[in-house]
Design a protein around this nucleic acid. Structure first.
Lengths: 350, 350
DNA sequence: TCCACTGGCGCAAACGATTGTTCTGCTCTA
DNA sequence: TAGAGCAGAACAATCGTTTGCGCCAGTGGA
């Protein structure tokens, strides 16, 4: 039963019913009596205004899109949960899209989300701009906030991690423990986060007087097999690195798997540091030293940015260009456990 | 720019534009020439039909709701990903809702989803029916499929695990290894899955001639602290169980944490089996013996059921009662690793 | 007596598409 | 030459709300 039927049933105008049911009774001076009558009848016949009609009229869907590379990755599932929770209170629904860490899929999904005319978008881009995602974002007439990455030269609100700092954090910890040959396992080759983290590692090594030869990099994808190939590339060689940083996702599992297969003891023969911190990190074998991102805070900031963007959109646009879009960069921290020690045959202690 | 503006611009009727843009040009005998002209102009002015108008007219949103207890739980995030992926191909979007394993929140969200007039719903209920969710489901005029649980007496398509069998699987494995005193750590107290798994454990123990006294049960919630309390209850006693099954979620982490704190070696002094299998299970300390659910298959079945339900809905309802709703029950399997061994002081071997 | 005011509500125009029906010219055939 | 038949496109109803505006009746003041 819809509003007009209910109105007819009560012998009232549909407009009156609408005003009461949307809680604007007094604003439009509907009498107590009528309001009650409508409310009661609505309750009885289980009538709730169809949001579709309302959306059409109001020009707002009450829903935003969330595009992540992999909802299975705990970082993103935590992000998703926090975001959904926060937006729920503002009565905004969340449409979920998972790009499987593929840039083409990401681009396709982005288009689909745009076509759906949602109120806004929170997007955690997979990686670089091979497919011109940033151009798409720029053209889109829709509040968008980018999370986990900042797109250079793009005037879009973003919340991200200082990835270079995070990489540096890991590398400095290893260097301090005495390591000279450090390996890095990338996730997706296109991941910009990984590239920046790698840069941080390089800087720390340079600062410590190490050379480019001392840095080993591998990894061409985030799938299990791709990670395993990368781990093999790093470990199945004569002069292997004495420590490895897995730059994202579940790379750490691949390293552990390969090390186990080779009979390498961790941290005795190989030290490891993993992105990101997880609930089970303390219970791995050995307990993992990890780099931890402030997930909840990132989600909170993203939602805040989105809300202000939504508000600005619904206002009359004062000037053509709004104030500089807010960009927030957060810092990671290190969780020291037992997967890092001095390299074999080294007497140096942290 | 919308269709009518484009139509005006081209000096054509909006209906013609609509038909071409929705790909029904030949069905309505629009000439090649006109079709091309429209397509080109649409491309140029970046016109895509607003799905809102279409939805209103067609009475279908092209979106379903997915209500899970905790998207952060790998079981559900995998589920979500599979579901979203499969529905994407059918051009159906997914709205995500996370009930935080709280029955009240779940009920509230369920109402909200109903109010949104989505095309359908996939719901993985938290637990029992204290709040009459099943009644709500029954009344709802909307295709719904229930996943991970079957609601007794409810004629609704469902995909679930044979939880009793899964519990039995775990218990039998422990009994075979020589254990006589078995502990179970529940997640949420209301979780029906956990209750059924527990029942399976009980049955296996009865079958093996063990008594009710030999079964220890604890756990009042799925949060980290609640789990930890449960673990404490099980382990901080004189005559503690020699083996523990964690019935869901991340209970295993709490058991490991408490065991570590108490200096209990696993599996030497305490054997454990965990629900569910995870990518990192093999790399825990010790590598975990787990009970594994066929997640992808469950998601696939759920989507299949939902699709047929959607199709039936759009058809003319032939009879008042459709055929018996499909209910599929899948079996779990056990992944044997190294967290189970004979109990201390026992010579029995598997 | 008349006017101004206001409380209470109805009218009707959007919002943006889809689709059954109708209308206008043709061409073809008898 | 006229009726049939068809291609091509326009008309208009419809989906379910929201909301600016207008209408009517009663009340108080002048």
């Amino acid at each position: 039963m819809n509003l007009s039927e209910l109105a007819q049933h009560l012998d009232l105008a549909i407009s009156t019913v609408s005003r009461v049911l949307s809680g604007n009774a007094k604003k439009y001076r509907i009498s107590e009596t009528t309001a009650r009558r409508i409310l009661a009848a609505a309750e009885e016949h289980n009538v709730i205004p169809d949001p579709l009609g309302a959306s059409l009229r109001k020009g707002s869907l009450g829903m935003i899109g969330l595009l992540v590379p992999d909802i299975t990755n705990p970082f993103f599932s935590h992000l998703a949960r926090s975001i959904e929770l926060e937006l729920r209170n503002a009565n905004i629904a969340v449409q979920l899209c998972d790009s499987s860490e593929e840039v083409e899929t990401e681009a396709r999904l982005f288009q689909k989300l745009l076509a759906r005319r949602l109120d806004g978008l929170i997007i955690a881009p997979v990686g670089n701009d091979t497919l011109g995602l940033s151009a798409l974002i720029e053209k889109a007439q829709m509040p968008i906030v980018v999370i986990d990455r900042v797109i250079p030269g793009l005037q879009i609100p973003s919340v991200s991690l200082d990835n270079a700092h995070a990489g540096r954090l890991a590398a400095e910890h290893l260097i301090k423990a005495g390591h000279r040959k450090i390996g890095c396992l990338r996730g997706s080759y296109e991941s910009q986060s990984d590239q920046e983290r790698l840069k941080g590692v390089e800087e720390a090594m340079t600062d410590a007087g190490l050379k480019a030869d001392d840095l080993f990099v591998a990894g061409k994808g985030s799938s299990r097999t791709a990670s395993l190939d990368g781990a093999r590339e790093l470990l199945d060689r004569e002069h292997r690195p004495t420590a490895i940083v897995t730059l994202s996702g579940q790379g750490i599992l691949a390293v552990l798997e390969r090390a186990t297969a080779l009979g390498l003891s961790i941290p005795g023969e190989l030290s490891v540091i993993a992105f990101d911190e997880q609930p089970w990190s303390p219970f791995m074998n050995p307990p993992l030293t990890t780099i931890s991102q402030p997930v909840a805070e990132m989600a909170g900031e993203a939602v805040k940015f989105l809300k202000t963007a939504l508000a600005e959109k619904s206002e009359v646009p004062r000037a053509d260009s709004p104030a500089n879009p807010p960009q927030r960069v957060l810092k990671a921290s290190i969780c020291e456990r037992h997967s890092v020690t001095a390299p074999p045959g080294d007497a140096v202690t942290g």
